[in-house]
Design a protein around this nucleic acid. Structure first.
Lengths: 337, 337
DNA sequence: TTTATTTACGAAACCGTTTTCGCAGAATAC
DNA sequence: GTATTCTGCGAAAACGGTTTCGTAAATAAA
């Protein structure tokens, strides 16, 4: 159907070897011949078969991005960052969604041993309990870099934000704003980001040593409905919180709605800070104080580092760890600012 | 490095042909032999090289998704829908971003003639002025289905929402709510969805024939800053609108902010309806009346139809056209409801 | 002039599967 | 007992590039 090297060779009375070399501008081929080859290739709009060349060259010019989901605005932005550098490098990007399932993540990673991709960008699922599948694919020689949600016990590049610090800052901020009982709404408990953010929260509470202030962590990692119910229950208790740190974006809406339903006003009855990248934070009712991650940048630097690992086999990914700062944007949900 | 068919063959004293057939459970191979092959394959964790088999079988088990961007929540959801059916079918999904650039779209489509993918899912860029690149790839035998943003002059499957009707409904709704001067905020003018939505708007204005009500369309297809300025200017004019239809999600925030800056209150001074899939619409200040598209469903059915086209060469994609209904959710931004 | 090197190209192996044949031997039909 | 059909398997040719190696002619070095 399509035109192949063989066709070019026949028309020009040259061998396929010559065509192949000419097309990659090899020094072995004379300028005149190259010229002729280029012209005919253009005229016939020759496009090389990527799988033939992948098979022979043992690379694929494609990377994989494995994510829990693209519901979150963080991952949307990260994908843009990743794609931008992949495009510059002439790479293709395959996308895989784990839906927070460990089995699915295992199956996806396993397939990568086939050589389908040259490298992997990954944010682990919330149910990832062990990391053997990841270690195995790395051991098989596959460059892999984590971004955002990492596995601490896997020795490879990690691009993260300052989760501990920003959570510490957020908690301290709520304390300064007068909160006496601050609750941390937890995402999947085993998640690296969740652990770091939780620790930042705990440390801040401990450091400020407010009387009667206890650390309290509520798990919210079911569906929207379940989370809504948990939050509503929380806010109807006798000694309900006066401050909330929501550790992931999807917890924002349930908190707002629960407050509205219970006729609690933010920030008077409850002050709220969320980890989120939503553009609409500043037009919420009231505008939401957020910790936003440099999502696009994270995707970009993760991809950049991955390509270093791909292009130079000697590049040691395990030495790479970059921490990008999140920014705390103060808005009305934590009181007037 | 990795284990190949040849390795299995040697260890079992069989030919590679036999192994290959056994692995795909061919009737040519005896049950006992199959058993032995399966066991060894599992033991050595054999994973076939996808590119070798793609080369030979002339298919790739992968589809391409080409989008303007993943900033929009619509596309995020659509990707989830696409991935869910691709996963079920055992296909891989490559993602390409045009960044609303025609040249980039052309380059991406052109590469697909190489056979890298078995099919294409696509939402055209806002700057796509002609469709030759699309027609060419289809003419080359590649199944392609449009979703959301389509090219009317390209004869292939299209999955869209009822853009005309929902825009008509939205406009009528604003009129019923008492708006006298309704403005349509336009995205890229050539976009199919924009044209349909614009026509629905115009028709509603015409049908209701309110005195002095003129059709007025404002182009907003620059960056956020530019759009903000345009909207702010619009709202400072002497005869400013009392109703706005924002045709795309990204126009929501600038309108809200402009209103806040100008101390105009929604819905008293201005009623607003947006085409958006944002979850946060209902916790905005005030809650936003929206037209939401069934994004996940659209991705899903687009992919489902694409696979029909891929699996049965005889399946005529050009006959396929499905229109999924958007839903108008009435909230406070258009007055009490 | 002879020898060494460079230049420009082609033959053929190779990447790892899939698939078409071909072919023994066993089973069944006549 | 011969003819036919299965059964189960292997040899080898694809698929479409890339890469190694060889080589003839042209050029440079001696």
């Amino acid at each position: 159907m399509s035109v192949k090297i063989r066709d070019l060779a026949k028309q020009l009375n040259l061998s396929v070897a010559t065509i192949s070399k000419a097309l990659k501008d090899s020094h072995e081929i004379s300028p005149e011949t190259k010229q002729r080859v280029f012209e005919l290739a253009k005229k016939l709009s020759y496009i090389p078969n990527p799988y033939a060349s992948s098979l022979r060259k043992r690379n694929s010019k494609t990377i994989a991005v494995v994510l829990p989901e693209v519901a979150d605005s963080f991952f949307s932005l990260a994908i843009n960052g990743i794609e931008s550098v992949a495009h510059d490098k002439g790479y293709h990007v395959l996308i895989y969604l784990t839906h927070e399932s460990f089995e699915r993540e295992e199956a996806i990673l396993k397939e990568f041993k086939s050589g389908r991709v040259d490298g992997i960008l990954m944010s682990v699922s919330g149910e990832t309990c062990n990391s053997n599948h990841i270690k195995e694919v790395i051991a098989a020689g596959m460059p892999l870099v984590f971004f955002d949600r990492v596995c601490d016990d896997v020795d490879t590049a990690k691009i993260v934000t300052d989760d501990f610090e920003s959570s510490y800052k957020a908690t301290s901020y709520l304390i300064r704003k007068g909160c006496k009982k601050i609750i941390y709404l937890s995402a999947s408990p085993a998640l690296s980001i969740n652990i770091k953010r939780m620790e930042g929260y705990k440390k801040a509470i401990a450091d400020h040593a407010i009387k009667n202030t206890e650390v309290e962590i509520i798990s919210c990692y079911g569906d929207v409905e379940a989370n809504y119910k948990i939050i509503k229950d929380l806010l109807t208790k006798k000694n309900k919180p006066d401050g909330i740190i929501a550790s992931v974006e999807k917890l924002t809406t349930p908190v707002y709605i629960a407050c509205k339903d219970l006729e609690l006003t933010i920030p008077n009855d409850l002050k709220l800070i969320c980890f989120t990248n939503l553009q609409t934070a500043l037009i919420l009712d009231p505008p939401l104080t957020t910790i936003t991650q440099p999502a696009f940048e994270m995707g970009k630097t993760a991809a950049t580092i991955l390509f270093k690992g791909i292009e130079k086999k000697s590049f040691d990914l395990s030495k790479e760890r970059v921490v990008l700062p999140s920014v705390l944007a103060e808005r009305l949900s934590t009181g007037n600012c």
